[in-house]
Simulated assay, not measured.
Amino acid sequence: MDVLSDVVAVTRRGRPRSAHVRWHAPWGQEFASVPGSAGFQVILQGSCWLLAPDAEPVQLGTGDVVFLPHGRGHTLADSPEPPVTAPACGPDELPLSETRDSDTHVSDSVDRSGDGGPVTVVLCGAYQLDPARTHPLLLTLPDLIHLPAQEGRHPELSSAVSLLAAELENPRLGTDAAVPVLLDALLLYILRIWFDEVSSQVNPTGWAAALNDPPVTAALHAIHRDPAQPWTVAKLAAESGLSRAPFARRFALLIGQPPVGYLTWWRMTVAARLLRTSDAPLRSIAAQVGYTSEFAFANAFKRTHGMAPGMYRRKT
């Protein structure tokens, strides 16, 4: 599995949620600030404004995609000075139909009638992330990513949006299975486009540079592909095609921590997910993340998470 796919798979928790909402002007909807979540808004028809604290209003048009990777609070409205017509909602309280079970649904299509003014159709969605294990790649993202619609650009993103909108507007057999997959694809396309655009700038830094640096990327792929391997700096350097010292410097410069530090962090992140999502015995999980001793694994896990693996499993 490549690094970006792996990051999304491991750090996302639960099922993503979405709503296909039709608003009639005048309207305004506040979205609460929720740390540990990531939200998106896609304008399918019409136009609106995105308003966020301490930021200039952003006008959005048909086809625009907005991604808020840190759960920043914001408002969507038909004008830059909106009448907010609904209370603030969080990821578990998207403007969905009141007839759906809020604990089980992942999608809905809603008509929010106003005074019969111009119509704006928005695809709203949210992903729940693990705030304790947010990947450093995601931490480097800005509060708001705006991908304006441009004809001929980002065809894969446009296709994912179209498929998702069709499933939400006209649910059919299989929609409940299709929507979460399409939401994950949408998230990956947004992140891919962002990192491609940032890496194309002059002298990119951090993860944008790391994901386009062949030696560092080779080492990252090795770690993510097989965290159980007994990796050393020398072995990872060999994967990268560099000698040990230049590789270690390059990795630390771009990733922000030494190779072995990142390896341990990733192993513990994978272990935490396995503890949450499986009934595998501790010795099996220890082996899957590179520990031959259950005792050594438990000590490493406790240093990272502040509690023993068994207690972590019971609490989560």
Rank of each mutant, 00 (worst) to 15 (best):
F40E: 05
F40M: 09
Q41T: 12
Q41D: 13
V42W: 03
V42Y: 03
V42M: 09
I43K: 07
L44W: 05
L44P: 02
L44N: 08
Q45N: 13
Q45H: 15
Q45P: 00
Q45E: 15
Q45F: 09
Q45R: 15
S47N: 08
C48K: 06
L50I: 01
L50S: 08
L50G: 06
L50R: 12
L51T: 05
L51R: 03
L51V: 04
A52T: 13
A52E: 14
A52N: 02
A52I: 02
D54F: 05
D54Q: 14
D54C: 06
A55C: 13
A55F: 03
A55N: 11
P57H: 00
V58D: 01
V58T: 12
Q59P: 03
Q59W: 03
L60E: 09
T62F: 00
T62W: 00
G63V: 10
G63M: 12
V65L: 13
V65Y: 04
V66L: 10
V66K: 01
L68S: 15
L68M: 14
L68K: 10
P69V: 02
P69I: 01
H70P: 02
H70N: 05
G71V: 01
G71W: 00
R72K: 07
R72Q: 11
R72S: 10
G73H: 09
H74V: 04
H74P: 00
L76D: 00
L76I: 12
A77S: 13
A77F: 02
D78F: 01
D78Y: 02
D78V: 04
S79L: 00
P80A: 06
E81C: 01
E81L: 11
P82T: 03
P82D: 02
V84D: 09
V84N: 06
T85A: 11
T85N: 09
A86L: 14
P87T: 02
P87G: 04
P87K: 06
A88P: 15
G90M: 03
G90I: 01
P91E: 01
P91L: 08
E93R: 14
E93H: 14
E93Y: 01
E93Q: 14
E93K: 08
L94T: 08
P95H: 00
L96W: 11
E98V: 07
E98A: 13
E98R: 11
T99F: 12
R100M: 03
D103G: 00
D103E: 14
D103R: 15
T104V: 14
T104I: 04
H105Q: 13
V106L: 07
V106A: 09
S107H: 12
S107G: 14
S107V: 00
S109D: 13
V110D: 05
V110H: 11
V110A: 13
D111Q: 09
D111W: 05
D111Y: 06
D111L: 12
D111R: 14
R112E: 09
R112V: 12
G114S: 07
D115A: 15
G116E: 04
G117F: 04
G117Q: 06
G117T: 08
P118M: 07
V119H: 04
V119A: 14
T120D: 04
T120P: 10
V121M: 08
V121G: 09
V121E: 15
